[in-house]
Design a protein around this nucleic acid. Sequence first.
RNA 1: GGCAUCGUGGCCGAGUGGCUAGGCUCAGCUCUGCAAAAGCUGCUACAGCGGUUCGAGUCCGCUCGAUGCCUCCA
Length: 494
Amino acid sequence: MKQHDLHIYNSLTKTKEKFTPIHEGAVGMYVCGPTVYSNVHLGNCRTFLSFDLVFRYLKHLGYKVRYVRNITDAGHLENDGESGEDPILRKARIEQLEPMEVVQRYTVDFHTTMAKFNAHPPSIEPTATGHIIEQIQIVEKIIEEGFAYETNGSVYFDVLKFNKTYEYGKLSGRNLEDMIANTRELSAQTDKKNPQDFALWKKAEPQHIMRWPSPWSDGFPGWHLECTAMSTKYLGDNFDIHGGGMDLKFPHHECEIAQAEACNHISPVNYWMHANMLTLNGKKMSKSTGNFILPDDMFTGENDILSKPFSPTVTKFFMYQAHYRSILDFSSEALEASEKGFNRLMDAYRMLDNTETSEKTSLDITSWRKSCYDAMNDDFNSPILIAHLFEAVKFINALKEGKETISTEDLKLLKQTMHDFLFDVLGLQNVAGENSQDGEKLTGAVELLIELRNQARANKDFATSDKIRDQLAEKGIQLKDGKEGTTFQLFNNV
RNA sequence: GGCAUCGUGGCCGAGUGGCUAGGCUCAGCUCUGCAAAAGCUGCUACAGCGGUUCGAGUCCGCUCGAUGCCUCCA
C-alpha cells in the first residue's frame, strides 16, 4: 500500500472526505451500468471512463478493489405508473428480435467500445435477469419490515411510511413535503397509495414478454431493485463506494438507499460519487432526444459534428482534462486542442529514452512527483494531474536543448512516474503502433524515402525533395525535420 | 413551480481568501533551401450589483443567464 491521503467528494454529505475503506487495504465499489437497448453513446462512456479512472487509481495505490458494474438487461417502463413501454421490448418489437437478442447485441457493443477506450473490465458484471431470485427476496424482506404493500399483483415501496423512521431524499436534497406539494400528475395513479411510492415488483401485462413468476404475480422487478440486490450480494450490506451518472441521483439512487435501509437498517454506501454530464450543443447527450454522438462515428469521422476523426485515447484524454464532477461540453475545437496537447505529451515521453544524463538534476523530481499524487488524491483531479505532466514536458524539452540537467537516478524516477500516470492511472495508449509487422515494413519504406529526399536536398534538387515530402503528406505521412535528422508521423485516422 | 449545480482571458478548462494553473489559438523569435514539425517568449480573466474582510474569482445576499433532476436516461 502506497502512502496516500486520498479525499473523495461524497455526494451524500456534499463535502470532500478522507477516504477510509471499511476493510483496510480493500475497496468495494459499485457503479450503475448501462441499459442495453441501444448503442452506448459518448455521454454514457464518460461516466464509465470517470469510474475507470477511480478504479485504476485505487489499484495503483495498492488497494485490492472489487469493482461491480451491472448490466441492466430487464428494461424498466418509461414511467412508474400504469402506462409506458419497456425500451428493450420496444426495440425487440421494432427489430423483430427476441428481447435477449437485443440485450446480447448491445452488451457486446458496450464491451467492445469500452475495450477501445482501454477501460478495465469490472471484477464482476452481474445482470438484472440473472438476479431475479435475489430481487424477489428483497421485496419479501421489505414487505416483512412493513415498508411495502401489494396492490393487484404489483408491489410498491411505501415512501411516506419509510420517511417516518428514515429520511427519504437525503441524497438529492429533497424533502417529501415539498415533493407532495409539487406533485404534477398527468394520469390517475390507481395502484399506488401515493405518487411518491415506487414499484418493487410489477405485474406483467399479457403482451409483456420478459416475465418471471413471483409470490405476487407473473411480472418483473422494479427498476431500482436490481442495484440493491446485486450491490449488497457482492459487496455486503454496507460498502465503500457507489458511483453513477448525475442523472441517476434522483430517483434511482435515492430509492436504492431507501430499499437497502428498509431491509438492512443501515445506510448502504459510505461514499456516493456522481459523474457529471457530457453535453453537446450545451445540452445533455441523451438517447431519447437524439442529441448524442456514438463512439464509432467519432473514431471513423462519419458524423456531422466533428471536422475530423478522433481516436479513443484522444477522446479519453479530452474527457480527463475536465474534472469528473464538472459538466463538459463536447466540440470539434475542444477535441482538436486536446489532440495537439496529447501528441506533445506523448512525444516528450518517447524522448525520455534518449535523454542524456548529468551529475545533477535541475528540477526537484521527487516534489514534482508528489504534486502529481496530490492532484489525484484531491478527489481524482485529473486536469491538475495533466497540468503537472505538461510541466514535465516543458522540462524534458529543455533537457533536449541542454538548458536543464538530470541525473541517471532522477531520469529513471521521472520516466517511471510518467509511465505510471500516463498508462496505468489515466490508461492512455501510445498510438504509434511500431510493433506490428506492417508497421516495420512501413517504417523501412518511409526511411528509404527520407534517405532519397535528403540526398536530393544535399544536391539542391528541391523539386524532387519537395515532391517526396508533399506526396507522402497526401498519403497521411508527415515528415518532421529535426536537428538530429528526419522522423515521420502518421496522421491519425486519415 | 420545486430541488440542485454552475457562470473564469479568443476557445476549452483547473483553482483550499493573499503568490503565474494547464492545454489550444494568436503574435514574435529560434531552427530550416522554402515550408511543416519542434522549441522558446509574450497575451492576467474571473456574469452584474451590494456586503463581510487588512485583503475575494474563492465567503454572504440580491439580480441576470445557463444546465441537470422532478418520466426512461451515464
